[in-house]
Design a protein around this nucleic acid. Structure first.
Lengths: 236, 236
DNA sequence: GAATTTTTTGACGAACTGTCAAAAATGGAA
DNA sequence: TTCCATTTTTGACAGTTCGTCAAAAAATTC
């Protein structure tokens, strides 16, 4: 239990190697580029060995999605600790989310695959637990900011609405907008010239409508973006 | 062109039959239940004939999604003509959307498959056009309601925001929320007790925040739901 | 160093997709 | 009716890929 033999280490490393290779395949050639024989070849083992690690192809996809979700969770945690008022902090999370989407579009694709029935159905209970715990971690972080806002009286939620309900709304609009952006080729033709900007605008509108102070009319939230870039996302 | 020979009729009918059978397969057994050999068998033709209609498996999926989108477009058109103020009409569309999701969850799944890269990639330009024109029809209907609202001065959009931008927001939050509802098993554990209600609430919040009158505080929009059920959805 | 357990291997069966040359059906024209 | 060109259908076939499993190899224990 406590002593990892060399053999066990080798196996652990191999698991990471498999995921690394699988990720490359999916990124460069899409879901169909993921091929068990080829993975086996590239890690210089046999197919049976790959199947020792992952019971089926779909388990690999889920494992990759979990990696992505963990990465996102860390980013959200950092963003939630942005130095500023509660509304600045929630917007930092939103900004981090947009950044994540634009900078790593492939990660978004893995999270999407997670939601495909035919993939989800085939995965083990154990791996589903991992997904669930990632979701809960993200939810806890963001709902935590909402709770802080309530505690500091920046926000009063209406009767019957929980912090999680509000997060659900923000989550929904972000996920939906990004899904459309990633898959609808013709957004411009549809009359939506700058969907990313529209998303940001809508999020502000939602927060305003919950009367989360300071309102977007009272504070220029665009002005803190540079600081978010530097302090949370480590950009130049 | 103008005279459909018996043979051509037979072919047209067969195409519908193929889609019907394919739909049953996907509904009852998921994406993996879709099988070209089985379809051929059930329409009492050979596989080659099926391939005469659809160049690949994915084309069938897209065709099914288009059927769904057309159904939705008709529903939206009806809803947009609801007798009432502009905000009532946009909410009728939202209500129709929720109804569609809850009543025909399978239809939602087809629309989701549309957004999967590995499926989309394989489809012909011709069929993509069909998807696009459905999207445009839906967008035009809903944006039309927004334009009516502007014309009647129920709504004033901020500088730089188009009616389509507003529709994009509503579309995003609806799609996102439904995606999460359809795929996240543990929403309750996450603290979201009634996601469908939360979605409705958020939509009202967005409309309020655009100051689309009458505001939800000035008019009891719950009270028109029975009428929407009867006049748009033909429910008892 | 022998015995036991764990891990690896790759040939194999099964399922499915998409192709294509040959066969059959169709629709005029003579 | 008969012939012929065109369209449509057929199903055997090649090609992929997944996942299995008995046997071999490696690691571990005694």
């Amino acid at each position: 239990m406590s002593t990892p033999t060399p053999k066990q280490l080798q196996i652990q490393n191999r698991e990471l190697k498999i995921l690394e290779i699988a990720r490359e395949h999916v990124v460069s050639e899409g879901y169909h580029g993921l091929n068990m024989d080829r993975i086996a070849e590239e890690i210089k083992s046999s197919k049976g060995t790959v199947y020792n690690h992952f019971g089926c192809k779909e388990e690999i996809i889920i494992a990759l999605a979990v990696q992505t979700m963990e990465k996102r969770a860390v980013l959200f945690q950092d963003a939630a600790q942005f130095k500023g008022g509660s509304r600045q902090r929630i917007l930092a999370v939103g900004h981090a989310n947009s950044y994540f989407f634009q900078k790593f579009p492939d990660h978004f694709r893995f999270e999407q695959m997670l939601r495909i029935d035919s993939i989800w159905e085939k995965t083990s209970a154990k791996r589903r637990m991992l997904v669930k715990s990632c979701e809960m971690k993200c939810m806890a972080v963001v709902a935590g900011v909402v709770r802080d806002a309530i505690a500091t009286e920046d926000l009063v939620l209406p009767e019957g609405t929980s912090p999680e309900d509000l997060v659900f709304g923000l989550w929904s609009i972000s996920l939906g907008a990004q899904t459309i952006m990633a898959s609808s080729e013709s957004l411009t033709d549809l009359g939506v010239k700058n969907p990313a900007l529209a998303l940001r605008f809508h999020i502000q509108k939602i927060l305003d409508s919950f009367h989360w102070t300071p309102l977007s009319t009272e504070f220029d939230y665009d002005s803190i973006e540079d600081r978010i870039d530097r302090e949370v996302l480590n950009l130049s």
